[in-house]
Design a protein around this nucleic acid. Structure first.
Lengths: 309, 309
DNA sequence: AGAAGGAACAACTGGTGGTTGTGAAAGTAG
DNA sequence: CTACTTTCACAACCACCAGTTGTTCCTTCT
């Protein structure tokens, strides 16, 4: 299936004859003839009925035409998506399962037709993400970056506080609590695998640990969410922390419980990084959306000191 | 934008390296390299990050990947739509504005995912349409064909009776009538342009004329619906007949009126032609749908004798 | 340091898509 | 009826590009 042949087919349907299509495309009538013949050979159907006055669509051609247009539109979109310059807003959401991705998705759904792409940078830490924003690789990135570490040229706005919840199996001591305080967790074993030293996540959990005297086991390899869920389901002592907006697709039969944390409510402060002065309308709309439509946060929240306000 | 390059790009993202993609596609690693390089040159973006272990998606690549998949899916669909054999059901609806097209569209909307194409055969008369059904050019066709003229091998089922309505301008004598009887129209001028001798439409209006003593002016060239609407809007004596389900997109400011006909209600009998014994599931579903979900028809309907039952 | 794996570059070649030239079919004008 | 026009298809030719093989470069692992 040759794309140029599709364009040629479209030109013929619009002009009604091969010669006119050829003029439009800047090639010879014979070339048009060849392209159409090749296309018809490829789809094994006659698309155009040749008459002495030009060409009409056959029945197969009628059916094929909208599909051809759709293909060309999809190609146009694909090229547009990565075209330097006027391309869709590109937001790094860290990970498709956690709340920034959900929030961006909700924004996208409530603003139909918005040109927006959610990506996940493979960068490990916030400083590298800020660099990517500065370079224009992405237009915005959700991170947890202390205000004094934001490089020049990049703006940071704390737009999304994700309350933490305890995730435990049905046999856990706290499994039936309606809610708990962070200080209740002192002495319990909390396991958050796959956190590497030097990342923003590590810094956040370190601050949380210090603030409430918790013992978070942040080491050890990450065998994937599946393995973590399996371990939680079977254990009476193991627990982990997740954001309240996160979407973990664990098997239903695990019967895991989410226990909200209050008094105070620890929140993970997602800060949106973007180039200072970036006037991209979708970026502005996204920031407005998050400021107004964000989840309601309780009064007594806790966040690391370095998160600002 | 070369489609083969897109396929190659996809193969590389799936396998993670050029050599594996090359094996999968049955070409050399160097050819893969060239194709990817050409694609990247074309979109002016780096799609893959080359590492010592193979290739990863770049940020642009991440954004581009779903678009590439969409293009290939659209191509797949386009080829499927005209592939001899297992192709979507193809229904000839005569004209996109009138009730069969509307009914097929409603069916399509209420049966998501149904593979269905609506086309308009350029054949003038019902006999040619029946021939097209027999040959398999289309799978079904809405026509008004007397039962005794249905050729062998083709089945006919009267599935859609479209009640007629009078369409008049605001200055017409009958403009404010809530409804009228066909016999009330005797003496009025009714103009239905563009009906050619020998077509099924001509036969229907001839029967209608004979039954109620009307004078239908079915001659004269058809300057398009626009011209007809314009003429109606300005005239105090001119009227035309339309099906109650038809969608004419006339300008709103014409202020045309639709007057239902009753006592009896003349209906245009749309008969569905299809190959006898055609077991296509979508065809069966469409027939079931029309039989059950069709518009409620008044008791005292009139249709030409030859329409059957 | 050497081996191994992966991608890019270089040189060559065959096929495909373009060109011009010409022919066939069908309608129109005289 | 014949000549002319219009439109598309076929034939021959040509140039370029997508493919090939051979090789280099780079990184990592032993």
């Amino acid at each position: 299936m040759d794309v140029e042949a599709l364009r040629t087919f479209l030109a013929v349907t619009e002009t009604g004859q091969f010669q006119a299509a050829a003029d439009e495309l800047g090639i010879s009538q014979q070339a048009v003839s060849k392209r159409i013949a090749a296309l018809e050979r490829h789809v094994e159907a006659t698309l155009l009925v040749r008459t002495f006055r030009g060409s009409r669509l056959s029945v197969d051609g009628q059916v094929f035409l909208p599909h051809a247009k759709k293909v060309l539109a999809a190609i146009e979109q694909a090229e547009h998506a990565v075209r330097p310059g006027s391309r869709p807003l590109r937001v790094d959401v860290l990970n498709r399962r956690i709340s920034p991705a959900q929030a961006v998705y909700r924004f996208y759904r409530s603003h139909p037709g918005t040109d927006l792409d959610a990506v996940t940078l493979s960068k490990e830490n916030a400083a590298q993400a800020a660099q990517a924003v500065l370079e224009g690789t992405v237009d915005a990135s959700f991170r947890a970056l202390p205000a004094d570490q934001v490089p020049a040229g990049v703006s940071a706005e704390r737009l999304l506080d994700a309350p933490l919840e305890l995730l435990v199996g049905p046999g856990h001591a706290l499994a039936d609590a309606p809610w708990i305080s962070p200080s209740d967790l002192a002495g319990h074993r909390i396991w958050i695998p796959g956190i590497r030293e030097g990342t923003e996540w590590a810094a956040f959990y370190q601050a949380l640990t210090d603030a409430f005297g918790l013992s978070i086991d942040a080491l050890g390899p990450n065998f994937g969410d599946e393995a973590l869920m399996d371990a939680l389901a079977d254990s009476a002592s193991l627990a982990t922390l997740v954001g309240s907006g996160d979407r973990y697709l664990w098997p239903q039969n695990h019967d895991l419980r989410r226990i909200p944390l209050h008094d105070p409510t620890p929140v993970y402060p997602h800060v949106l990084l973007f180039r200072s002065g970036d006037q991209h309308p979708v970026l502005t709309a996204l920031r407005d959306h998050l400021r107004t439509a964000g989840p309601r946060i309780p009064h007594d929240v806790w966040a690391p000191d370095w998160a600002g306000f």
